[in-house]
Computed example of a mutant assay.
Amino acid sequence: MFFGRNIHEFVRFKWIYFFLSLVLMSLSFLFGEYINGSKNWISFFGITFQPSEFGKIFVILYLSSILRNNRDKIDKYMAIFLILFSLIFLILQKDLGTAIIIIFLSMLMYYIRTSKYKFLLIIIIATLILGVLAYINFPHVRVRIHAWLNPESDPNFTTYQVLQGFFAMGSGGFLGRGLYRGNLELIPVNYTDYIFVSIVEELGIFTGILITLLYFLFFIKVMKNSMKMKAKDESKLLMVGFNIIIALQTTIILGGVLNLIPLTGITLPFISYGGSSIISMFIMFGIMQKLLEGDFL
Rank of each mutant, 00 (worst) to 15 (best):
M229F: 05
M229A: 12
M229I: 09
K230P: 00
A231Y: 02
A231P: 00
A231K: 07
A231M: 08
K232H: 11
D233C: 02
E234N: 06
S235R: 03
K236D: 02
L237F: 06
L238G: 01
L238T: 03
M239Y: 03
M239V: 08
M239T: 09
G241M: 10
F242K: 00
N243C: 15
N243E: 13
N243K: 08
A247D: 02
A247P: 01
L248K: 03
Q249P: 05
Q249E: 15
T250R: 04
T251E: 01
I253T: 12
I253W: 05
L254R: 01
L254I: 15
L254P: 00
G255P: 00
G256A: 03
G256Y: 08
L258H: 05
L258A: 11
N259E: 06
N259V: 06
L260R: 03
L260W: 10
L260S: 09
I261N: 04
I261G: 01
I261E: 08
P262S: 10
L263V: 11
L263S: 04
L263A: 09
L263H: 08
T264Q: 03
G265T: 10
G265Y: 07
G265L: 06
T267G: 13
T267Q: 15
T267R: 03
L268C: 12
L268V: 12
L268W: 12
P269V: 13
P269E: 13
F270W: 11
F270M: 14
F270A: 09
Y273W: 14
Y273M: 15
S276F: 11
S276D: 12
S276P: 11
S276E: 12
I278C: 07
I278G: 05
I278Q: 14
I279N: 06
I279E: 10
I279R: 11
S280E: 14
S280D: 12
I283D: 07
F285N: 06
F285P: 00
F285Q: 04
G286E: 09
G286S: 15
